[in-house]
């Protein structure tokens, strides 16, 4: 109710408090961004546990390097950059992403998936699983920059302007990455569906 509740503080104030050693302030930031962070990690990993680990790791890195964070920059942008870099690094380290476990886990998610909800027959379900696998492969085959720009736009809904900030790149470059990614995916997916 009052502005003395940390949950209502702006990012900047929370970062300042966390920099002064108030861990609880950082925990508020975690609560504020954990779902977004998890989702972006999930878009890259397509694995629930991996996404959790990866997004948590991003928070921990942000926490340990909080002193080097420039308050003039937005926490969100700074944090997302750490996270996206971790996601890229994760893929490089793992080589292959556990696409197979993805469908299983999505189906275990409690039927909230619109796709799972719309498809009931086993045939359709198998087909949707196959499509999902092929989509995963198509995404994985994209060059890292194209995939990143695509996921940030298509999955996360970030503006070109924000993607450019996160990827530390020019907006024109992001548009080219996005265009190439979409053109490739359209080509590959049109053969499937």
């Amino acid at each position: 109710m009052t502005t003395s509740r940390p949950a209502e503080f702006e990012d900047e104030k929370l970062v300042t408090l966390a920099q002064k050693g108030q861990r609880e302030a950082f925990e508020v930031l975690v609560e504020r961004y954990k779902q977004k962070a998890y989702r972006i990690a999930f878009d890259f990993t397509r694995d629930r546990e991996e996404a959790k680990d990866l997004s948590q790791e991003a928070f921990l890195r942000a926490f340990t390097h909080l002193q080097s964070f420039d308050l003039r920059a937005g926490f969100y942008t700074w944090f997302y950059r750490i996270l996206v870099n971790l996601c890229l690094d994760y893929r490089r380290r793992r080589g292959r992403i556990a696409w197979e476990s993805f469908d299983e886990k999505t189906h275990m998610a409690g039927g909230q998936s619109e796709m799972a909800g719309a498809i009931s027959s086993p045939d359709r379900e198998a087909m949707s699983g196959e499509i999902s696998r092929r989509v995963g492969e198509a995404l994985q085959a994209l060059p890292a920059k194209q995939r990143t720009a695509f996921i940030l736009k298509n999955h996360q809904g970030l503006s070109i302007h924000d993607i450019a900030k996160v990827m530390q790149s020019a907006e024109g470059t992001i548009k080219v990455h996005l265009h190439r990614a979409v053109a490739t995916l359209r080509q590959k997916l049109a053969e499937l569906v």
């Binding site: 959790k52 998610a109 409690g110 796709m115 989509v135 198509a138 298509n154 995916l185 359209r186």
Partner: peptide, 24 residues
Amino acid sequence: RLLPLTVKPDDPPQPFWENYSKEM
């Protein structure tokens, strides 16, 4: 028609998020 297919929703249950916060 095609691009929405690339997004697979994932909706972890509430205990997942509680566990997430606790671990953090």
